[in-house]
Amino acid sequence: MAAGDMSAPLPGTDYEHATSLGIANDKLGIWSFIGSECLFFGALISTYLLYVGRTGDSALTPATIFDIPFTSASTFILLMSSLGMVLALAAIQAGEMRKFRTWIMATALMGATFLAGQFYEFTVFVAEGFTLATSPFSSSFFVLTGFHGFHVALGILMLLSMWAASMMGRLPQQLHTTVENIGLYWHFVDIVWIIIFTVVYLIPAATAAPVAG
């Protein structure tokens, strides 16, 4: 923490409303929260990595259970929803409200598609006998991806609320910082999935796969 560079605004400015650092309170708040969430997902991913080899008596290992092409598709959709989010932000910053609503809805729909995919994936797993209680591997997998899914669901709820607020004319252009903050949350959920895709799905499925030939 360097102290010198955070000088307070000069006296004589309208300091009743200005902030000491010249940055918005809510944005600083959301970034602090995201910093905290790094430790949350760090703990969940670490548990998974620790338990990925502990499949117990079950034959259901990363190599046998994961459907990589399917997960790749849903990963791609979530990644593209991040693009939708930034385009929505650019639209509201430019004051193009119709475009904003289109992109925010597209983002929410892509998020919902991802979530539906996850729901389908879980259903298939459970049908194959891979449940919360199967092994430490299954427990850590479901709790990690489940909490990620919960974060996505919260994000979708916020995106849809913004869409509805905009439809009712209650999200004027000045509130683009709100869109930006919710966007930050959305992108964070996305980068967590970027890590999960490789670390939870691809690498374990590859390392445990039968050697070709």
Binding site: I23, W31, I34, G35, C38, F41
Partner: peptide
């Protein structure tokens, strides 16, 4: 400052 808060979180987790 945002960069610091975020990467402190990521770094600490690692």
């Amino acid at each position: 400052l945002f960069r610091r808060v975020f990467f402190v979180g990521v770094g600490l987790a690692f």
